[in-house]
Design a protein around this nucleic acid. Structure first.
Lengths: 113, 113
DNA sequence: TGGAATAGATAATGATATTATGTATATAAA
DNA sequence: TTTATATACATAATATCATTATCTATTCCA
């Protein structure tokens, strides 16, 4: 198992949503994007992205359309929906709150972060 | 299902370890402790604590002994081991790193945290 | 022609948090 | 004395979601 798989739980969708707020994208690109930003600590697998996509599409967070396959196989593009944007805003809020609580619970009283 | 169960994934053990670095404790107390600090956002269930205890004891992170049951049933106390302390130190480090990466991935370029 | 990079898909597996339920003790209220 | 409540531990069953392992397909380049 990858090192920090559990830490990503519940954040995967939020991260995908955020990337899609900037522009429509497709699985492979998003996967690379995350790994590149992850500095070796965060490493979401392709398969995880695709299963997340399907889940999120079923939930109405994403809309999809086929694009062209420039330099490779066909691309399935994903766009964030209004519902997706609202959820992203909520999750973003939640993260900032949760972060301070976890800071307290994990680091403790000596807040020399 | 509870709201933020996924956010806690991978942090539960770290939180328990941290509380045990301060003093030996038992399931019920730890459970209450976490919920009280959780501000309604973090809510680790009793059963989660107990299953984590057993896992961590098997991993040699905790040692256990029976205490007295003052005002209730008997208490099983847990103490953190050296191995547990080392793991806690690692996890604490990991959290601070992960936090900044997730900040970038979730909040994005507009770092108005 | 064959390998590498790109791109998508899914079944099976695994880890862990939750739900549901059960046991047991002590104290205070009725 | 019965009952409710708080304390305390335990575990089987379930759910969720990330990973592993595979598979298919296309394009470019050597």
């Amino acid at each position: 198992m990858a090192q920090n798989s559990d830490f990503l739980r519940g954040h995967t969708e939020t991260i995908i949503l955020r990337l899609l707020t900037e522009k429509d994208s497709y699985g492979y690109e998003i996967s690379k994007n995350i790994v590149d930003s992850g500095q070796g600590l965060v490493d979401i697998k392709d398969a995880t992205i695709y299963t997340a996509f399907r889940r999120m599409e079923n939930d109405g967070l994403l809309a999809t359309y086929w694009g062209d396959g420039v330099g490779g196989a066909r691309r399935r593009y994903y766009a964030i929906t209004e519902k997706g944007r609202r959820l992203y805003a909520e999750k973003k809020e939640e993260w900032t709150k949760l972060k301070s609580i976890l800071d307290y619970l994990i680091i403790g009283s000596d807040k020399n972060v």
